[in-house]
Design a protein around this nucleic acid. Structure first.
Lengths: 221, 221
DNA sequence: CGAATGATTTAGATTTGGCTAAATAATTTT
DNA sequence: AAAATTATTTAGCCAAATCTAAATCATTCG
């Protein structure tokens, strides 16, 4: 139930990286944490035994539901402290991150919940990022249809507009499901089809009819 | 310039123990920190090389001026957070200590000075203990004459009421100087002489004339 | 396809803080 | 003053989190 500063930093980094990539590699994480790949492997084994991680050697990793819950707790603490530092202590918005990096590891739940109340249950930190509530829920952004997403912007599949077997079959074929990270690379004027990148690398072309039935949000958390 | 959580806890405990005893022993410190004497010895060696401690093997230890400065910084952080928790987050006074134990190790100076300002530069924490200012100074209690001190109460010699060679000779003989910890054990009605304990163990009898010329404070910090 | 390249893991060392057991110093008792 | 007791230190281990170097797996390119 309680994690070391080091474990928390790993969990947090994995959370942020997998938001961008879906799955995280050893080298990516080592670069992010300014440590060595060998150290990452050691920690991954440890986090796997704690059931916070899906991890197969050589295959990258992603957080389990438990891991995600832990990550959201850390992010909640970080962003609440950022809000406090900016709002109450008059730090400028570019100073808050560094200080919050230290404060976020104080994980007393009562402290954080009381801080939240004291601050008036803010929805966003000074950088505009959403603050998870005491249950780890992030106020979901509005769902919008894929054709309305700007180019080169990362977003996450949040739902579909109908449940027909035909649509689901197509989605399955294209490996698109709830939670898949999508970036629109090109929109073709001729037929309104679009080229999208899903997950880490696969490039796909989808029709306008399909795109219209895919709902996304910008911040799945 | 930056110390580990473990080092800080040792420094803080030594500070508090030596306030009571003048000098601190290995076993005392081990009991206080719920660790083993052997671990204490290891840490003492380390803190000595960092010049925070006066330490001769088998002879106990006390903080150097540097060590005291560090200790006051930790205590400042602890007590400011306690004040914040009670005053702003509505923790009860008996809950604040435990949470402040964690927050005190976040040692960003700007954070603490801004917190101090935000709180209105409080002089005492919710337990009534004095909060050192940004320079490590504690608002000194009033100096009072030794005969006015209640029995069995620890206090610290803060000055004398005259500078005569005769008085200084006597003080030297009784090993009483500025900073000496004193506790009054008995007061004899007959001649108003008193029995005092100085430092760790030595018991002394001093005359009323002498006692009247010794000034003390309750909290030397 | 198979070799080269790059990513990842294994093996072994280091640092920090802690532990136990044994040795030694200091103090107290007889 | 010698013996017994208590306090303290030394010696040798352990675990966490890191590192470097070497080995191994996976992929890509000629």
């Amino acid at each position: 139930m309680n994690y070391s500063v080091s474990e928390e930093n790993y969990i947090k980094s994995i959370f942020h990286l997998q938001k961008k990539e879906g799955t995280v590699t050893t080298n990516e994480l080592a670069a992010e944490l300014k440590t060595r790949p060998a150290s990452v492997t050691d920690m991954m084994k440890k986090l796997k035994t704690k059931k916070l991680l899906h991890y197969q050697p050589y295959k990258g990793f992603r957080l389990t539901a438990d891991g995600t819950r832990v990550a959201l707790g850390i992010i909640r603490r970080h962003r609440l402290w950022e809000f406090f530092l900016a709002e109450k202590l008059k730090f400028t918005w570019d100073e808050v991150h560094e200080v919050a990096e230290e404060l976020e590891h104080v994980s007393n739940k009562k402290l954080i919940d009381k801080l939240d109340a004291y601050l008036g249950f803010p929805k966003n930190d000074p950088h505009g990022d959403p603050i998870p509530d005491a249950n780890g829920k992030i106020d979901p952004g509005k769902k919008i249809r894929l054709p309305d997403v700007p180019l080169q912007t990362l977003c996450t599949v949040a739902g579909v507009r109908n449940q027909s077997a035909e649509l689901l079959e197509l989605l399955e074929n294209k490996k698109i499901k709830i939670g898949t990270r999508i970036e629109v690379r090109k929109k073709f004027e001729f037929d309104q089809s679009m080229e999208i990148k899903t997950g880490k690398q696969s490039i796909n072309t989808i029709s306008h009819q399909l795109a219209e039935n895919i709902l996304i949000t910008y911040d799945a958390g």
